[in-house]
Every structure is written in structure tokens, then in C-alpha cells.
Design a protein around this nucleic acid. Structure first.
Length: 274
DNA sequence: AACTTCTCCAACCGCAGGGTT
DNA sequence: TAACCCTGCGGTTGGAGAAGT
């Protein structure tokens, strides 16, 4: 594969020598040697100004490229593997608050990069929207996310779907139910908080669960889709920026019971603080 | 087996904003 | 204070592998 390119357009480029440097810059996939050089340099000197870092490390890459490679791939704390239900829930929730603020969302998912979250959104979430034949930014789709997808994720988490890893802890913050230790979703307001990052194992079963969930979501959402009576006119759900409480109580009463799709006996009020 | 289509994700691009000279 | 440089962000692209025909 040809990796060395000239810059396609170097508007207002300066000297012939810098043009020559531009011509020598590598683009495209990183090689193991380049990765090693970058890791080695950063482990010895730390991160710094990326352009000079790229030069001093002997990499024929832009500082931008080095930064991206380090942050998205080489950093030791980068988590790889499938997005867990907990992480999906957080992404959906945070996206409903902040929109495409990927880096801001990523700050709340330790080890996950903005790029990864952005890719997740584009591949998974937009796929759902496509299957439902609606725009990902439409109110209809947002309602499906809020009233179907997120409760389903909570249900899965509640059912023990998070046993693949222990990155989240659940605890009552409103005196409801308690349950003592972590890992229990119960009645009342539930605090969903990150406690650490841990490598994901058992990828196979996660994929199967995700596929099942996707099928389930699409079928259930299309079977009871767009019924205005199910959606509260003031169901904005998401509150202020400090603390978001999604009240699924009303939804459960008016939707799940009313359509024979009851998913739980619990009244789920879910919030998380950061 | 060969070809096409789809999906995923790493990497690129342009732009905005902040810092430095 | 204008010009330049660097960083970070969000949008987009293109290649590799998987899935379908």
C-alpha cells in the first residue's frame, strides 16, 4: 500500500523546504514501527507539542496525525471492544443532552474516545433510525430512544446484562429500595456512576445480546410507533445540566401497561451525577 | 468460487479558538 | 494587534473484512 503522499492542497505554503517536508509526510494507516516510535518517544518524553514531537520522534507524520493516533489508539487507557449496555445508556442520555458533542460525551466514558462514540452513533444509532425510516434527529426517533431503547437497556442492566464487566455501580440516591451494595437497580431514583474502566471480555455474547436487542427494539417500536397518546406533551425528560432525571414512571403507566408491553413491575426513575 | 453489497472504524480534513510572537 | 502556530473538535471518507447472492 502506498503510504506516502503529497499534501493535496497546501494553501499559502511557505518555503520550498517546507513543501519538501510536506511531500515526505506519510498518511494512511500506521505501521507497527511508527506506533513503536511514537509510544517510545512519549514514554520517554511525555506528550507535548505534537508538531515538534512528530519531528523529534523521527516520524514523518503531522503532529495532528500523531495526536490522533495516540489519543484514539495507543494510549494505555484506551478501552477496546464492544460498547456495553451501560455505556450505550450513557451515550444515548448524554447525546440527548448535548447533541453531537462527542468529546464532551467521551469525558464521561473513561477509556472511550470521541471518535469511537461518534462511530458508534453513526453505525448503530443511525442504523436504528434508518430501520425505523425516520431521521435520527427527529422527535419520533428521540422518543423511541427515550421510551423504548433506554428502558430496554436499563432492563438488560437490571437483568444482569452488565455482568460482563464491573465498570458501573448502581446505588440508590433517593432512599428508594436501597439494596445495599452496588449492582442493584431498584425502585426510586438510581444513581448510575462510573467507578473505573475494565477490559471487556466475552465479546461473543455481547454481540449476540446487542443483535437481539436491536431486533427487539425495532419490532417493538414499530408495533406501537408514533402513538401520540403515549407521549407526554411535556415529556422533555431531560432536566438541567447538573443532574438529569429521566422519569419513566409516567411512560410505564401510559405506555407499557396500556399496550400490553409491560416490561417491569418497577417504577424506574433513573438519574446520574457526574 | 467469484462477485457485489454492507458494515465498521481508523484516519483524514476543514474549521474554530486560544496562545505566542 | 495582526500574523502565525498549535490544538481540539466534529464531519467525512475510504479501506478491510463480513455477509449476502
Amino acid at each position: 500500500m502506498e503510504l506516502v503522499h503529497g499534501k493535496p492542497c497546501s494553501s499559502g505554503s511557505a518555503t520550498p523546504s517546507s513543501d519538501q517536508e510536506d511531500m515526505d509526510l506519510r498518511r494512511g494507516p500506521w505501521t507497527m514501527e511508527e506506533d513503536f516510535m511514537l509510544i517510545n518517544y512519549i514514554s520517554n518524553h511525555g506528550e507535548g507539542r505534537w508538531n515538534s514531537l512528530a519531528r523529534h520522534a523521527g516520524l514523518k507524520r503531522t503532529g495532528k496525525s500523531c495526536r490522533l493516533r495516540w489519543l484514539n489508539y495507543l494510549r494505555p487507557d484506551v478501552r477496546r471492544g464492544n460498547i456495553t449496555p451501560e455505556e450505550q445508556l450513557l451515550i444515548l442520555e448524554l447525546h440527548s443532552r448535548w447533541g453531537n458533542r462527542w468529546s464532551k460525551i467521551a469525558q464521561h466514558l473513561p477509556g472511550r474516545t470521541d471518535n469511537e462514540i461518534k462511530n458508534y452513533w453513526r453505525t448503530r444509532v443511525q442504523k436504528h433510525a434508518k430501520q425505523l425510516q425516520c431521521d435520527v434527529n427527529s422527535k419520533q426517533f428521540k422518543d423511541v430512544v427515550k421510551y423504548i431503547w433506554m428502558p430496554r437497556l436499563l432492563e438488560r442492566i437490571h437483568a444482569g446484562g452488565s455482568s460482563h464487566n464491573n465498570i458501573y455501580q448502581y446505588s440508590s440516591i433517593n432512599g428508594g429500595g436501597g439494596g445495599g451494595g452496588g449492582g442493584v437497580l431498584n425502585q426510586g431514583n438510581i444513581n448510575l456512576s462510573l467507578i473505573n474502566g475494565k477490559e471487556i471480555e466475552d465479546k461473543g455474547s455481547m454481540v449476540m445480546e446487542e443483535e437481539e436487542e436491536e431486533k427487539e427494539m425495532v419490532s417493538s417500536s414499530s408495533s406501537c410507533l408514533w402513538s401520540e397518546s403515549l407521549l407526554s406533551p411535556n415529556s422533555s425528560g431531560c432536566g438541567n445540566d447538573q443532574s438529569v432525571l429521566m422519569d419513566f414512571h409516567e411512560v410505564e403507566e401510559r405506555w407499557w401497561d396500556g399496550t400490553g408491553h409491560m416490561i417491569s413491575d418497577n417504577l424506574w426513575n433513573v438519574g446520574h451525577e457526574f
